[in-house]
Amino acid sequence: MPLRHDVRRGALMMLGATALFTVMGALVKALGDRIPFPELMFFRNALALPVVLLIGLRRHVTLRTRRFPGHVARALTGTAAMSCSFFSLTVLPLAEQTALTYSTPLFVTILSIPFLGERPGIHRWGAVIAGFVGILIIAIGQGPSARRMWCRRACRNGSSGPASPPPPCTGCSPASPPCWCASSPAPRAAPPSCCGSRC
């Protein structure tokens, strides 16, 4: 069957797919605390199977293939990717997980060299490096810089601190000193999770 290019329809379908993926991610995030992510994966695929079969019957698609090992490899890598995606939704904020999925073009560019024999130019490598830096900023955005911002709010608001809980702190013991305000040598009564960060 020859390919038929329909830019408007394709763009609308892509927007719809993105919206539905977002809804699916939100549902996985909401249910992840109560239902194990492998069970969520099972029902996601089980509910998609009738739709795939319906499309196949409508277009008279046959399941016969000459590339069975390739389909097996595709199924295994797809299942592994879905497992990582669903698990990350249960342990990361939804916005952060969604932003990190935009690292896909970086890996596509890198893997296109051994698998497709492509040779990316300097402009594409520049875009890959810039994208990787952006992914690093997203990945460490909840680290020390977030705790420093929390401490600054604690100093501005007084000993009561801001209403939101402090970001998690790694590598610090519970006895770590609290946030120190620059205007005073004594610490305000901010929680110790600031790990001695200076405002």
Rank of each mutant, 00 (worst) to 15 (best):
A80C: 07
G121K: 14
G70C: 09
P69H: 10
F87P: 01
Q97T: 08
G121C: 13
I138Y: 04
A80F: 12
W125Q: 05
I138F: 06
I137R: 04
Y102G: 12
V91P: 02
S85K: 00
S85E: 05
R67S: 05
G141S: 15
G126Y: 07
L116C: 07
G78A: 10
A130N: 09
G78D: 04
I135L: 05
T77L: 15
T77Y: 14
H71K: 08
R74D: 01
A99M: 09
T98I: 06
S85N: 09
H123I: 10
L136S: 10
F86D: 01
L116I: 06
R124G: 04
A73E: 08
G126M: 11
M82L: 14
S83V: 11
I140Y: 15
P93F: 09
C84K: 03
I137L: 10
T101E: 08
I138Q: 05
L94D: 02
L116W: 10
E118Q: 14
I135K: 02
A139C: 04
M82K: 00
V91A: 05
Q142H: 13
L136A: 14
G134E: 10
R119M: 09
I113W: 01
T98V: 02
I113A: 04
A139S: 06
R119V: 01
M82W: 01
T101R: 12
A130S: 12
Q142L: 03
R66D: 09
L111N: 07
T90R: 05
G70K: 06
L136G: 07
F68W: 15
E118P: 01
R119Y: 11
L76E: 01
T104R: 09
G134C: 15
Y102A: 14
E118D: 12
I113G: 05
P69V: 00
T77V: 15
A75K: 04
T79C: 10
L111V: 03
A99T: 00
T79P: 03
C84N: 03
T104I: 13
G126H: 06
V72W: 09
S85F: 11
W125L: 05
G134T: 14
G126C: 10
T109I: 13
L100V: 02
A80T: 11
R66E: 04
L92F: 07
G78C: 06
A99C: 09
L116Y: 11
Q142V: 07
V133Q: 07
T98K: 00
R119L: 14
H123Q: 06
